[in-house]
Nucleic acid binder design. Structure first.
Lengths: 214, 214
DNA sequence: TCCTCGTTTCTTACGCTGTAAGAGTAGCTG
DNA sequence: CAGCTACTCTTACAGCGTAAGAAACGAGGA
């Protein structure tokens, strides 16, 4: 009989671990996530986690994977043009990334390899091929839009550790007369959402023009 | 008189440290870079580096900064249209990122704050404003293109630790009948350079159309 | 009922990390 | 020569990912 209660089953699951890890990252950032702290959040020792996840890196992959899930729900509506559907897909991806900005640095530096994520890619290619693209061009188009969204969202919300500074916050004070145009552009606003819509519209328009012309 | 030669001046410089760090990252990847190993590469103890760099994070910032230097040389030629100049700027950025893919994860997750990098931004805004854009729209356009290049290059070459697998290498074997379209698109090639040109062209075309229309 | 066994959990340990604190030397300035 | 500054080193600490193996749990058969 020790004062420490003999270890009861914690009811752990790989899924539950990933859930809590996502919460933790949302709150404290990736940099702050350690196996020991994650274990503590689950009332468990660090090594226990290794029975469900082979490594911390695998845990990161699972987090990234999680973000691609909602994209599976974006399917073309009857009669919808491909560029409109692609726009919806891009916005869905962006929304999910923005909902978990802490995972952004992970999503940006990790290839997509999971079965479920590849399934989404395949489904998207199906839509584009049905719209008349060849498989190679379809992948070009999809890759272009997805990497565009990732890059754009990264620049907007993906910051290193737990620092939550927007462009305006970090630069607003430091400008002055040295960078007049930059200072003016930042001061006059340009909300991120508008910038994204502007850029996405331009990209899709360019893709449509290419599809029609070539 | 100890057998260890009394510490001679190592002729260190912040610049030299960043140089060697860049070499190291190019060869072994960011994940492998530690202050001790970087010190060893410079024949110096780890703590010595802290007289030139306040922290490892600052060193990372310096690395990212370094990559933006070549962009300063991309200036509009007389009579050149803005979208052609912007295309050259994008390609220059991409070339530099591809030359140092190990730094890509850093570039992607770090805001631009250095004087020199901001100077490049200001100069680029100048060009766009001279071409008729308002300051806010100019920043929109520049931001759109630069984040696009970053996202695209990241998806193409920016992989986590030291792993150097291309899409084809990592996925080529695992496909089969489960992802027919993806497998076909990958098998039929689609070189990265072509994909980038395709996407960049589409994006610039979309931006031009927007500039003319709005 | 007890015993055994696979699953889950914990303990301990190792080598690594970034870096704070401070000691000591090299070489310049007087 | 003395003194000062700039530089380099040593030591140390708290934390990291995780390898190895011990210990306790819940369930199944005897």
């Amino acid at each position: 009989m020790s004062d420490r209660r003999a270890r009861p089953r914690a009811g752990l699951t790989r899924e539950r671990i990933v859930d809590v890890a996502l919460e933790f990252v949302d709150e404290h950032g990736v940099a702050a996530l350690s196996m020991r702290k994650l274990g503590a959040a689950l009332d468990v020792e660090a090594m226990t986690l290794y029975h469900y996840v082979p490594s911390k890196d695998a845990l990161f992959e699972a987090l990234v994977d999680r973000l691609t899930v909602p994209m599976g729900g974006v399917r073309p509506e009857p009669g919808e043009r491909w560029e409109r559907w692609l726009g919806r897909l891009a916005r869905a991806y962006r929304a999910e990334l923005l909902a978990h900005p802490g995972v952004l640095p992970l999503a940006a530096t990790r290839p997509v390899t999971s079965r479920v994520a590849l399934g989404h890619v395949e489904a998207a290619l199906r839509v584009l091929v049905d719209a008349g693209f060849g498989p190679v061009r379809a992948l070009d188009v999809l890759n272009t839009v997805m990497t565009f969204v990732l890059g754009h969202t990264l620049a907007e919300a993906g910051r290193t550790p737990g620092a939550e500074m927007s462009d305006v916050d970090s630069l607003g004070e430091l400008d002055a007369t040295e960078f007049p145009l930059l200072a003016r552009a930042l001061a006059e606003g340009a909300r991120h959402g508008e910038r994204f819509e502007f850029a996405l519209t331009a990209l899709l328009a360019g893709l449509v023009a290419d599809a029609v012309g070539g």
